[in-house]
Design a protein around this nucleic acid. Structure first.
Lengths: 346, 346
DNA sequence: CGGTGAATGAGGTACGTTCCTCAAAAACCT
DNA sequence: AGGTTTTTGAGGAACGTACCTCATTCACCG
């Protein structure tokens, strides 16, 4: 019933405690045969090391870095805050968490920033960045030197990262499409699509998902070419305003990136707020307000706290060679409407 | 930078380690004045006790009980499994988790079952039960003997429970209402409402939320009197079938409780599957399938894993007198449609 | 002022692990 | 066989806390 300890393993394997320790911590100087014997005893007894005691003993200080783009969106601010908070909590126990803010869309700057903090060994790294060869190579190097790596929000499927912490963006786009289609009703019309950049993988995926669903299930809705807002409020407002006055029959707007304030600005100026169905991403102070006043009808969201906790948990699990709880680490595609809005966190 | 230890507190307060220990663990034999001095040192240095080391030292085995009704719904089975799994994971570290399955709608049996396991002291208890005076008194007694108590899924607002782990059911009903209204379109019609029992608080709340939203925003939809299915597939099928043949113009069904299989049975037999908008609760194997084949259009769900983790975390935090992370413990009202369905867990 | 009981201190052991040293044993090589 | 290297064992200290005992000090009382 009680959990076996290293002492039990030693007894079971017929070796000394020192040898068990050498095996457990992959220290050299143990015959292959002995390693096997110990591992067998471990599986036989179902030993799992007491991480708490281990960390206590080794006084380990994990060193983690979160690499985030220097974008002033409310979502990223919330994410930074969430990371800071999580780092202070029990998941961040015994660890130092650096947040590296790097210029967006500049992979070289990102690589430099990460390498600058490699003077001390880095145990784990969470990277949010567009998919580029530079970043992929960085991940390869980090992994080679033993750093655990997760990708955050935007995946790098080509890189040997340990895990992706974020949502399936095609599914998110599909979800947005269904909501738009259902909410807009049966009359034909056009859908304006606002993205951060057409070069960002997540934006492309979301748009792709949207188009799939519209074609399949809402053929009376026609999606317009992507408008690029570059996560900037004013720019977003200008491009969407231009689009709205050029096109008639825009019945819905899907804003897949940041800069959502620009979207609501444009709608309000055009007198369209509440008359055009809007689906946006990420719950922020602004999207919350817009949901409440009826300018935005649904928000697709990934919880910043969950992202931060999950990233840190996964990194620690990888380092300690522990299993991860798939169910817990799966980031959900939250659908938020006015009625199921979580109460604001003070 | 490094966290202060009890030794630092002792030095800072000018007392011995033994005294600090007495204060920290609320042991008797310390003058009020000294307690104050120690507490002051604690806040001054910002000491937080190292729970891992503490648990290691005291070899504490928490004893928890989850009290669940003996209902054979897929959701409850999933919840039982989730609890078992969580108990094995890091959150359940050093704790024994009992799952008491008690006859539904029988508060006396529930009370007896809980009291039967009180021969050994119980550190924490999570209760899922209808709101009754018997349960309230049980909570009072448990609290009095020092057991932490949370209510699960259904709250007992009158009882001195430490925390409620679950969703706001009025908001869940409102959410369901908006989805029904949006999905059903502008044509007038009737909404059938299936509940487990009209005596269960959560069912009443959900129905209330639904009616609020329909009245406010979808006055062309008229909700019919609640049908009671008592979480039973066959009974549910019968009452809903009867309703569907008695009423014309039923354009939507809201099933607020378990027995969802009875709902889809009735719709299929009546040839209405896919032609009537259906909103159900809880993601199970069955509701997943029905979402995929178009019989159900949206599912309002609370994640069983999250419920289990949250309940256990909150109980432990209360016992260790630690703060809880509100954001993490807030159970979300998940809206699931075909497009944002999480992949099935094997 | 001495007596008494309460308050405090000093010190030890334990929890499960890491990490270290030094000695002993075993394996390997010519 | 002897010597060398590799492998193993034995033991101890440490991490931060809990909990125990016993001795000492203190405050208060009459």
């Amino acid at each position: 019933m009680v959990r076996p300890t290293v002492i039990d393993i030693a007894r079971e394997a017929g070796v000394s405690l020192a040898t068990v320790d050498r095996v457990l911590n992959a220290r050299p100087g143990v015959r292959e045969k002995t390693v096997l014997a110990v591992n067998e005893a471990i599986t036989r007894l179902g030993y799992v090391r007491n991480v708490a005691a281990a960390n206590l003993a080794r006084q380990r200080l994990y060193r983690f870095a979160f690499v985030l783009p220097d974008v002033q969106s409310q979502f990223l601010q919330a994410l930074r805050m969430a990371i800071t908070e999580v780092a202070r909590g029990p998941i961040g126990e015994a660890s130092e968490v650096l947040i590296l803010t790097v210029p967006p869309r500049d992979p070289h700057a990102l690589v430099r920033a990460v390498e600058d903090c490699l003077d001390q060994p880095l145990d784990g790294c969470a990277i949010m960045a567009n998919e580029t060869p530079e970043v992929r190579d960085l991940v390869v190097r980090l992994k080679a030197q033993g750093t655990a790596v997760v990708t955050l929000i935007t995946d790098q499927p080509q890189a040997p990262r340990d895990h992706f912490v974020g949502i399936d963006n095609v599914a998110a786009g599909r979800t947005a499409g269904v909501l738009l289609g259902r909410f807009a009703g049966p009359a034909p019309g056009k859908v304006a699509v606002v993205v951060s950049s057409m070069l960002a993988r997540d934006m492309v995926d979301r748009r792709f998902g949207l188009d799939l669903v519209l074609a399949e299930r809402f053929p009376h809705l026609q999606s317009l070419p992507s408008l690029e807002g570059h996560d900037d409020r004013d720019l977003t407002e200008r491009v969407l305003s231009a689009c709205l006055s050029a096109q008639d029959q825009v019945v819905a707007v899907y804003t897949a990136g940041a800069g959502t304030r620009g979207v609501t600005d444009a709608l309000r100026k055009g007198g369209l707020a509440g008359r055009v169905v809007v689906v946006a991403h990420e719950l922020t102070g602004h999207t919350r307000e817009a949901l409440l006043d009826g300018t935005i009808h649904a928000v697709i969201s990934q919880d910043a706290g969950h992202l931060a906790r999950s990233a840190l948990r996964v990194l620690r699990a990888r380092i300690d060679r522990l299993a991860i709880d798939e169910g817990q680490e799966r980031i959900r595609i939250d659908i938020l409407i006015r009625e199921n809005l979580p109460p604001p966190t003070s």
